[in-house]
């Protein structure tokens, strides 16, 4: 498939450009990478406060919460490094009418937009998250078997798909009205909720955060998979949610691009 090869080469080239640009501004290592990790950890203050007053948070012991926080860092870092920058870049293109230049490229339009910018320094947060997961897993003396690791991989894949799909949906809405460009900020601030175990939420909010804006799939499910507490029903639910969101995002994007009128037309 020559098309796939071309798309992959395009992604590699876009990544290389972003990395080179980031290496030019090495001060970004301090302002974005290090401070980003510090503040993401500081954002766990409410969890620490809750554990000061309670032995566990909705059934999650302190080290299990650390495990959860590791997965949170991975997803928050992925959002900051890979998803938020292209969202802002593309929204800028839409606003200024310069999206034409991106749409003209000989690759898939959505792909071209979603790799239009990266913040490589922010990916350090993902590494810190992975380290936190390993430390917590060692502390909890987890010995995940192949079945649990498969569940983990599945949950992570579903979580990333869902996060990307939500980003694309926000982007598709911004075609409709320039005013909706701050949806990316709304996403950024609500991702904070993924820090908490899904079992804290009750009733309709629990359903929303499991199936509509599936923060549970991003952080709670991977942690539960490692702990051997993720049942098959939930895993299938995650798969269906991620697939549905991805489909919706694809349709939303197609309609968005169709409605797009460049600056002069």
């Amino acid at each position: 498939m020559p098309e796939l090869g071309r798309n992959l080469r395009y992604v590699a080239a876009a990544l290389r450009v972003s990395v080179l640009a980031a290496l030019e501004y090495r001060v970004g290592f301090w302002t974005e990478a290090v401070l980003g990790v510090i503040w993401s950890l500081a954002g766990a203050a409410p969890l620490v406060v809750a554990l000061e007053h309670r032995p566990d948070i909705a059934g999650w012991t302190p080290w299990e919460v650390v495990l959860l926080s590791g997965f949170y860092l991975i997803f928050a870092g992925a959002f900051g490094a890979l998803i938020e920058p292209p969202l802002f870049e593309t929204m800028n293109h839409i606003r200024r009418g310069t999206l034409d230049y991106v749409l003209l490229r000989p690759v898939d339009s959505l792909l071209a937009c979603m790799v239009s910018a990266f913040q490589p320094w922010r990916s350090l947060e993902m590494l810190a998250g992975a380290a936190l997961v390993v430390v917590a897993a060692l502390r909890l003396e987890l010995r995940p078997g192949p079945e649990q690791l498969a569940m983990l991989a599945g949950a992570l894949a579903c979580g990333f798909t869902a996060l990307y799909a939500l980003g694309v949906l926000a982007l598709s809405l911004s075609f409709r009205a320039m005013q909706l460009q701050n949806l990316a900020f709304l996403m950024e601030s609500s991702i904070e909720l993924a820090r908490w175990p899904i079992s804290v939420f009750r009733g309709p909010l629990k359903a929303v955060f499991t199936f509509v804006i599936p923060f549970a799939v991003m952080t709670s499910y991977p942690a539960q998979a490692l702990l051997g507490r993720l049942d098959l029903g939930a895993a299938v639910g995650a798969l269906v949610t991620a697939a549905a969101l991805a489909g919706l995002a694809r349709v939303g994007w197609a309609r968005g691009v169709k409605n797009y009128t460049s600056a002069s037309s």
């Binding site: 005013q179 909706l180 460009q181 701050n182 949806l183 900020f185 709304l186 601030s189």
Partner: peptide, 8 residues
């Protein structure tokens, strides 16, 4: 836009 900010 203001409503989205309120929600943010």
């Amino acid at each position: 836009s203001l409503l989205v900010w309120v929600l943010t």
